[in-house]
Design a binder for these strands. Structure first.
Lengths: 200, 200, 200, 200
DNA sequence: TATGAATGAGTATTCATTCAT
DNA sequence: GATGAATGAATACTCATTCAT
């Protein structure tokens, strides 16, 4: 990597980091591009060399945050050897994410209901670059519950359940609707278990 | 309803209608309060006699749209006498909503993932004013699948499943993620069925 | 005229005046809308209640300046009773304008080659409101040189000759091209005389 | 011409061509230096090695376009042997230019009223390099109409008439003021003839 | 109640120009 | 000479909100 290219990446990174901080601190609407550049110690115009507009940064950050939450949860769950079945593992992953968001509602407010699930094609394309997701999918595929289903079917199902949890998580934690998160968890996890149960 | 009160409601209504049209036409962000008042044929200042700010109108409209979609779907499903079990009915209701949103993506774009479910307390409070929801809940409660569950538990479960469907509906129709809506429907409906199946 | 309408006209006027001063002082390009409003002692947003954008003010001012130059010249020439024929009068009017612009090159710089001739239709429409132009045209029409020509033909001819003079005036005074204005005058006035001579 | 010098001229040329295209496409105001360099396939900084700023390019192009229009018209008129007198020739040249601008209003919009007449001194300085203009002037000088006039007087007269035509051409074609170009032509050409008629 | 003129803070975005490589 | 990343000043324009009438 040439020095110049390295510096560019560094700047892009600085802008993303600055934007993230500010988005959490005061929300996306109340963060101006100028706020971002001044915190990133970069000139205003430089912003537009790296991003189309504020929306593009937000989108990039949504992806980054989602991915981080997901991968941290996966890593944590991998340690817990007592979890044997795939449904149990999925519940544990979701629970890990929910707990993280409950602790850090600023992140939740930024994320809203817009959790970005890594695309199936992305996962497949980046075999080795994305070992985590890859491994996860392998685990899933080989689980008895999923026997007889295609990779795509499984992905659809997991994604739908995940969306449910993120959506409920948002309104539950931030608005207490339809109930507080502690009350919703059993419902969500029961649905997951039932939805992933072995086909009879 | 007195004439004075009637006129007030009329204006409020005109503002809501104008805002709704504009929100669909150009999106909420690109609609100004002035746009709304000028379409409603009302002076700019008048807006603030009826609403706190633009956000309040949006919120009111989200509720209105959600309620309309839901009640239309319920009414349509009530006609279909062949549907016996509650899970079948719920799937039919959701399907009705999804189809409506698929036909009218402008509404979907306005709604985003923010479908507003009528609150359980609201339903209970407005016994007669809200006959539809009331009736629905009664039907649900008396269905064999729900035996042994409290009203609240049922409400949580339905809401969670509904949120899942709306969330998936949004990204599926508008972004094709994780797949097109036709491919997602079987997954969603299978999850609903499993999640609402009779307890063994 | 109601007070409110009066105040509006006053503001519009203040904006035009402020803009005119600034356009002469530093040129149109280096004058910002903010400069104009701050000199007019009016809020920034107010500008946009009266004009579409900076270009609209410029256009309005070009019309105003042109009209003023023309009417002052006409009035001055009307005094000079020794001028009998229409061509002589026209030359005198043009010369008056040229001299005014030579004295005040700031105005000339603002005007560039964009002198706005009062439209024939405008003149006709505003019979009494525009006594000057009206009178002028009557004089012209009744002059022996113009016998047998329609009003429109005369207007075209006068306008063309006027445009020539303004265009030459601009490059001559400001750039000395094709020669200084003193050298160009005889040429211009000779052309006018020949172009307006009695038809044989 | 050395290779190095050739390459420089090539780049200058590329920049001019790119700027010309863009000026016609979107107007001078909406064309940035970056637009120009990127179309010319040259780095942004390179622009400033060849031109002071955008204005310099505009000026250079105004001269180029004017010259091209004029010389094409002259060449075309030279063919038409039936035109004997100088006034007829001048009218034919102007008419050729007007028709060209009428066909290509983009060029007219770029040119505005700023047609650049080749300077008398330039013509004289570049005896052989500028054979066209030189020849033209010779023709003019020897025409009976111009007998008794100095070269300079003739140049002034022609230039003034030309400016009139270009100015009228602009407002006539683009704004229809004071009338459409077809209606203005007879007026313009009559003025030219009268202004260039043999002295009695 | 209703009006709509006035406000002025707020922000995105552009772009000419520089300069280290 | 050539590059193109970085700069940051400059500006137009929007719009929610107020308030005198």
């Amino acid at each position: 990597m040439s020095t110049v290219e390295g510096k560019k990446q560094e700047k892009r990174r600085a802008l993303l980091d600055a934007a993230y901080e500010l988005f959490l601190e005061r929300g996306t609407a109340k963060t101006s591009v100028e706020d971002i550049t001044s915190r990133a110690k970069v000139a205003k115009g430089t912003f537009y060399l790296y991003f189309q507009d504020k929306g593009a940064v937000m989108q990039a950050l949504l992806g980054r945050v989602s991915y981080q939450l997901l991968s941290e949860a996966c890593m944590a769950v991998e340690q817990q050897t007592e979890l044997q079945t795939f449904p149990d593992k999925m519940v544990a992953v979701i629970d890990h994410i929910i707990e993280a968001l409950r602790r850090d509602t600023l992140v939740l407010k930024f994320l809203e209901r817009n959790f970005v699930w890594p695309g199936l094609d992305q996962i497949e394309a980046s075999r080795d670059a994305e070992p985590l997701m890859r491994k996860l999918l392998t685990v899933v595929m080989s689980s008895p519950e999923m026997v007889g289903r295609t990779e795509r079917e499984i992905y659809q199902r997991i994604t739908a359940l995940g969306s449910m949890c993120m959506s409920v998580c948002y309104s539950s934690i931030l608005e207490g609707k339809p109930d507080d998160i502690e009350a919703m968890k059993p419902v969500l996890y029961d649905i997951i278990h039932k939805a992933l149960a072995v086909q009879k």
